[in-house]
Amino acid sequence: MLSYTIKRLIQGLITVWFIATATFLAMHAVPGNPLSGAKAMNVEIRQNLERKYGLNKPVGEQYLIYMGNLARGDLGISFTQKNREVNDIIREHFPVSATLGIMAVVFAALGGALFGALTALNRNKWPDTVIMLAVILGISVPSFVFAAFSQLMVVKINALLGISILPVAGWGTVSHMLLPSLVLGLGTMAYLTRLMRSSMLEIINSDYIRTANAKGLPQTRIFLQHEMRNAILPLVTVLGPSIAGITTGSFVVELVFAIPGLGRYFVQAVQQLDYTVIMGTTVFFGAFLVLMVILVDLLYGLIDPRVRVS
């Protein structure tokens, strides 16, 4: 077990190195200079700036310096936010993205499990039809449409009631988080509902449920202890990748709801060609993903005795 973990971690480190190198190459392939501004500067000022950021050195040397700093955990100073270290930017903005992502996954998992179970238990009755219609919407409507539309709805409702039920944008309190995380989690919720529905259908038609019913067990107990518990397993296995995917894919929601997450910074950094922030964000997200995958694999080995880590 321990040696397996170590082996996986070493592989993970190599993967992070690969990500860093790929980012470095892709980034330097982008034409343009991160130091240029709307107004051109004269040669002396330009050289002073390049010296400060080490851009006067050959690309190979820049790469080695960057990798050296990376190994020490130093991601450098942002080109656009000149008084902030990339480490600080990540430390301040990643928790926002992560909170948003985790809340979205919680919504998605809760909603998916409940709605999925509901549809399966009422197969071909109206709750099934209604929910599956909603699921179809959730799968097929792009998230940016949802984001804009939900924001508009909140405004209308607030105006109608005369008080603010939910804030329209911003970040800080739990109420700020509800709408964006719901929007972010909607797609995953739809996917999980479908997964839950088929998994539940399989279970309620199985022999042991029939037995439990025949024994006269209370319905609630059958539902909670047998049906839900077993049907939920497939959901658990997809949660790990979902969290990572959602956390790293929340650009649009962060943009529309004015949330200071890391995704928004990345889009800006790319547009501004902010080398250090681009590098830092990709390497960090890459490492995060790799770690999540390793963790899920290890946990899965612990939870499910049929799977032996090898």
């Binding site: 993967t15 790929a22 993903l289």
Partner: peptide, 18 residues
Amino acid sequence: DFVVALPFLLFMILFKIA
């Protein structure tokens, strides 16, 4: 495995620009 580990949307944007 390496390529799978690249964060998808981030690299889509980066490659697209590059």
